[in-house]
Every structure is written in structure tokens, then in C-alpha cells.
Design a protein around this nucleic acid. Sequence first.
DNA 1: ACATAAGCGAGACGGTACGTCTCGTCTTCTG
DNA 2: CAGAAGACGAGACGTACCGTCTCGCTTATGT
Lengths: 203, 203, 203, 203
Amino acid sequence: MATSHKEESQANRGRPRSAEADRAIMEATMRMLMEQGFSDLSIEGVAAAAGVGKTTIYRRFPGKVDLVIAAMSKFMMLDSVPDTGSFRGDLLAFHAHPTHGFSLRLLSGGGSTLLGTLLAEKERNPELIQTFRKLVIDRRREQFRQVVAKAEQRGEIVTGVDPDYVASVMFGSLIARTIGGFDISDEVIEQTVDAMLAGLLKR
Amino acid sequence: MATSHKEESQANRGRPRSAEADRAIMEATMRMLMEQGFSDLSIEGVAAAAGVGKTTIYRRFPGKVDLVIAAMSKFMMLDSVPDTGSFRGDLLAFHAHPTHGFSLRLLSGGGSTLLGTLLAEKERNPELIQTFRKLVIDRRREQFRQVVAKAEQRGEIVTGVDPDYVASVMFGSLIARTIGGFDISDEVIEQTVDAMLAGLLKR
Amino acid sequence: MATSHKEESQANRGRPRSAEADRAIMEATMRMLMEQGFSDLSIEGVAAAAGVGKTTIYRRFPGKVDLVIAAMSKFMMLDSVPDTGSFRGDLLAFHAHPTHGFSLRLLSGGGSTLLGTLLAEKERNPELIQTFRKLVIDRRREQFRQVVAKAEQRGEIVTGVDPDYVASVMFGSLIARTIGGFDISDEVIEQTVDAMLAGLLKR
Amino acid sequence: MATSHKEESQANRGRPRSAEADRAIMEATMRMLMEQGFSDLSIEGVAAAAGVGKTTIYRRFPGKVDLVIAAMSKFMMLDSVPDTGSFRGDLLAFHAHPTHGFSLRLLSGGGSTLLGTLLAEKERNPELIQTFRKLVIDRRREQFRQVVAKAEQRGEIVTGVDPDYVASVMFGSLIARTIGGFDISDEVIEQTVDAMLAGLLKR
DNA sequence: ACATAAGCGAGACGGTACGTCTCGTCTTCTG
DNA sequence: CAGAAGACGAGACGTACCGTCTCGCTTATGT
């Protein structure tokens, strides 16, 4: 199991691990990760915030990285593929996507810095960003492919489109704006989507 | 001067500051910033790497943020506007841009985490990313506008192009790929540039 | 009963307490008390040494103090008054007194630290030393009075001797030597006894 | 040096150790040792009580034992040999001896338990009681020898007296009373001294 | 005979202190 | 006066026990 480094050789002996503690630890970890970033997240702080002894955390996770990865694994599940009936609607749905409050928009811009935190740790703890990629980005990519495929089947867009390239342009231009210091309003998103569509829709 | 918080009211009394120490501190700071990111860059570490006492750094800079901003200011000067004669050549030159080894490509991808670091610190130390924007991004944007203007004057591309949008798409798609975990090879850059051009060149 | 804090209102229902566990706990407690002293005696350690769960101990004793008092009560029973026929023989018998291996000599010196432990805990857990006094010292004192009375009746020693003062001098000088860092050999004991006798025997 | 484990190979470089911190650490250690005993004395607690970082203690002492030994060394200096002009006066002076508040009487009886603490730790930390012996007991013994020698020279007492035996009897009988649970009043001390004298004074 | 109830070993729980580490600041001596 | 060395208070690290609290199981008794 990813959430525990306990030996499983023994039978179910002794008091079982507290599900309540599990939950409190995961929630506190995720909250502090969002609020303070990875570097400033301390296991001691998580323990205090979760109302839990340090032992209880160390019994479950060997270290900070594992704790954070477990928390991300727990909370970063993305929900189902957008399916609004039109390509444009699906694209807009992607950006709104409030899955557990961790849409890409929140991640790279606005009030949060989780993506930045993970990138900053890339060298020392590459597992972090890799996990994030596996859980969020790769999944998104796959969903985006499905959305494009459906649009093709409906005959909305030209054939032969590379969905990954389209995704990188659409999300990337928003990320670039964020880095450039601009807020990402709903209008900007609509403009970006429409510019994208301009090159893809069948005439 | 940005590199010192010393009172300048007095005459030149006492031992002058060591130019050699200045240089060593800046180089060590930049190197460690690239290698370890902002959070793990410690003044203690910089001092050790520069072969300098911690005092010598704290005498020059009030804190870590100021030290890093000073280092960025020193190294992130971008050289002149690309002028290869063709729009395509200018765009490629932008990406190659090896100004002191800190092109955008290095910043967002490959072996570095500076951009992630800056994003991660956005909330706590907004001066950092603001300084980065002023020094690098805004400058780039202006240069990009000039490149686009020249292309228009030469009649290479259609008129009415928004150079900022073009830039956000082109750079953003590369950043998105980086975040997605892909290396940015020269071929990818060329493909990205050519895709861009496809929509802009006059037929 | 001193060895249990269980309510006895109910009939004998449920599984009875294990006599084997009782025994193992008492033995392990006494052994570890001798080896490690009171402060470092841990219930966890006793449980492990006795091959018993911690619960099994805490079910019997509210805390460490009660556990130790119970162990002392069990092992520190002194046997009958020495009666060798001569005062000198009786005195020597007192010091040899190997009742379950816990003679005063073992207590105050040699390989043990129980007496020190009790003194150290005097402020915080006065019951400990009080129990020790009741079980061991007061009993000894009474026995010593009988020995002195017999010697008087036999006409061996001068009359009017204060047996408590004699005892405090004889045992005290040995304790003082122990504290001073000297081992208490059989010769030393004999010398001490003989010095004592010198002032008491009838000429 | 007993109070430091610092390498002295280097010249006087860097900031010197704070004498104020030294003092605060020693005082807090001694106070907590008297109040709580050795086992319950925590370095963390000493640091807090002294208003000092843990580092500052660990820089000076490798561990708790060394800290306590240093504190004892500092405070347990006994003052000069009693010299009242008479043997009886000298003996009484020994018992009153309020050297820094740590006379034997305080140690073994009354409101303190330091001696008990040291005895309790004999097995695990023999350095403690050994240091105490070197600093206090051996010194006392030597002083006692001088007092006896002076009494002999003055012709007060019979010759050939073994001062160590006399000391062990006198102090020991008081210790034995303490262990027996009796307070040591001034009258008891006088009685003990006079009983001692009865066997030693020339007629 | 079998339900009931208490005892049992195992082990998780919230804590506290450990001794180590590194942070950014402060304070001395040397050049 | 600048510089280097290094001590300072602070506080997180991961470990080891503390004494308490479940668990699933075993062992008796009493109907």
C-alpha cells in the first residue's frame, strides 16, 4: 500500500490504525501544503494541526515526501471527462473544473502556488512533481484527447489535430500570462478558447 | 545602488569592501539558486561556497530576498534584440538566447527550478517574481514587439497581430511541455515556431 | 489484597487472572528494580521481561509506585530473629542475612541502588520509603531489640544499652562506607561488630 | 577543562562563549537537580529555565551527565577546615557547615534528595557519585583527619584513633536515622557528637 | 452447551524529551 | 572599519519510551 510502510507479514494483531487519524493527517497535510508550500511544511506542524502525535505520522510515512505524495494521491483525483455536447463547452469546462478545488487555474495562478512549490523541489525531490504529473497532468491529457476525439467524431473540427499540442498551447498561454503577472479572468479564458477554436473548427 | 544597503553619507573611511568578495557572493548565489532553488538557498551555504564570512553577506544585503534579487539583476541582463533578417530566424534566436546561460528554456525546464521557486514564493515574497518580471519578462516582451514590428515592416506577416498573445502562446506551450515532464529539444522548438508562423505568414 | 485494585463486588466471573503472569511480573519487577533503579524501571520493560502485555500489569497496579511496593512486600519478608547463642554471632547473622538475597548490605551497597532510589523518590513518592521502612527497617529494629535483650539476659553486655542507637551506629557506619565508595567485605563487618562489642561487653 | 568539550587547538577566534549563558545554565541545572532529581532533569527544561537555546548547552556539554557533573563541581566546593579551638566545637561545625547550602545533612535528609539521586544512578552513571565523592566526601574525610590530628596534638583525645572510622560512625549513624525516617535535630547531633567523644576523650 | 464476561498479548494512540542540525543574527579578534 | 570565525536563541528533525486505549482471541463460569 502506498499509504503505509508497515510490515504486513503479521496477522491483524493489536489495535488497528485510526481511520480518523488517517483522515486528519491527510487533510492537515494538504491544507498546509497549499498554504505554506512544501519547504515550509513541517511534520511537527502537521501533527499539531491534525491533533495527532508525531509518532502517529512517522508510523505511517517514512518522511515528509512520502506524506505529501500520499496526500496528493488522496485529494488530486480528477472527476469525469467534460461532456457538454460541444467542443467549446468542453474546453471551457476544463478550465472551470473545480475538482476538489484543485483545477489547473488554481494551481498555477490565482491564490495558490502548489505547482510552483513542486517545481521548486524538482531537483531534490523529483517524486513530488512526478506524482503530480501522474495524478493530474497525465490524466488531464488523456481527458483532453477524449474531448478532441469526440469533437472530431461530431465533425466539429478538422481532422488530424494533435490534441497534446493543442492542450499545451491552450493551457500554456494561460500559464505564461500568469507568470507574466496577469490575472486569468473568465473573459481571458473565453478569448483563449475562441482563438484556439478559430484554427480548428470546420468552416 | 541595488547591491548595497550601506549608508553612503560618510566619506570613504576604513577598509573598502572587497570587490572580489562581491563577485564571489554573486556567483555563488546564482549558482546555488539554480541548483537548489530559493527555499534551500541558505546564506550560510552561499558564504561557505563563496569562501566568505556570513557577516560579509549580511553587511551587503538585508536578507535572502535582496541577495537573490541582486544576483538576478546582475546576471539576467538580456542582450540586444535578435535581428537575423527573417522573422523565423528572430524567433529561433529568442529561444537559443544564451545570455549568460539563463535563457527562458533553462529557467522553466531542464536542470533548473528558478521559475518554480519564484512561483512558490509568490505569496510570501512577491518582490522576487516582480523583480524577475521587470528584469526579464517585460524586457523580453518589448523585444518581441520589436521583432514582430520588423516582420510587419518587411511585409513578412499579416498585419494586426497582437505580439503579446503570440508570445504567450509560443513560450507558454514550451513551458506547458516542461511542466508536463518533457524535455525541450531543438526540434520541438522549431516545430513550435513553425506552427506559430503558419498562422501569421502572408500567403 | 495489596496486589490488586480490582473491585471484588462481583462474583468470580470471566477468565481468572493468570497466576503465572502474577509471578512473572513480580520477578521481573524486582530484578529490574535492582538492576536499573526505580526511575528507569519502565512498565514497558517489565512487561517485555515478563513476557506479558502492558495491559496485564496496568490491570493489576494503578502505577509504577504500586507495582514496586507490591514487589517489595512480596520479597522483603525477613526471616526469624537470629539466635546463635552469642551476641557476636547474632550481630554477624544480621549482616549475613540472605533473605531472598536482599540483605541490607545488598540494599545499600554492592550491586544495587534500591536504597538510593528510595531516597531519591522520597519527596515525590514518600509511600515508597515508608513502605520500605515498615517492611524492612522497623522489623529489623524490632529484631535487633530482641537480640540485645537476649544478650542482656545472658549477662553478656552491660545494662541500659539503647538498642536503636547501637543499631544506627553499626548499620550507619557501613552505609557511610558504602556511600564513601568502599566495598563492604566480611572483614570490615567483623571489625565493625567487634568495635561495637568493645564498648558493650561486660569486662 | 571540565566545563567544556571544545577543541582548544585554535586561537581565540570567533565570538567567545557567553559567561552569562554559562552562569544561567549552571544555576538552572543545580536548581532543577535539587528539585527534580537527575532522572527528571531534562536538558530541554534547563535550556528553557536558563533562557538559552539547547545548542548552547550541547556546545558546552556532551550530555546530561557531564552537565550535572559540571554543576556539582561548580557549587560543591567546601570551605575551610573547622577550627574552633576544641574537638567538640570542630565536630559540631562539621554538621552545621552550610557551604553553599549543601551540607551532608541537607544531602541525606531534610528537604533534599541529591545523595539519593546519585546513589540511584550509581549503576548507570557511576561518574556522578564518583565526582561527588571526589568533590565532597573525600574532601570532608581529609578535613576530618585534620580535625582529629589537631585534637590529638592538643592532647584532647586518646592517640591511635582511626579518623575514618570515627567519621563513618558519626555521619553514618545520622544517615541511618534519616533512612529510618527520623529528622535530625540539633539535639540529636549534639547527642551523637557527645557519644562519640565519650569514647575518645582522655580522662 | 454455550452465552457471557473478564483476562490476555499485541500494538496504535497523544505525548515528551532526546541529541542533531541549520537557520539568520550577534559579537568578538585580526588585518 | 571590513572580514572570518564562531557563539547565540530558535525550532524542526527522526527516535525512543511513556502510560492509555483498543483490537481479536482465549479461558473460565453460570445458566
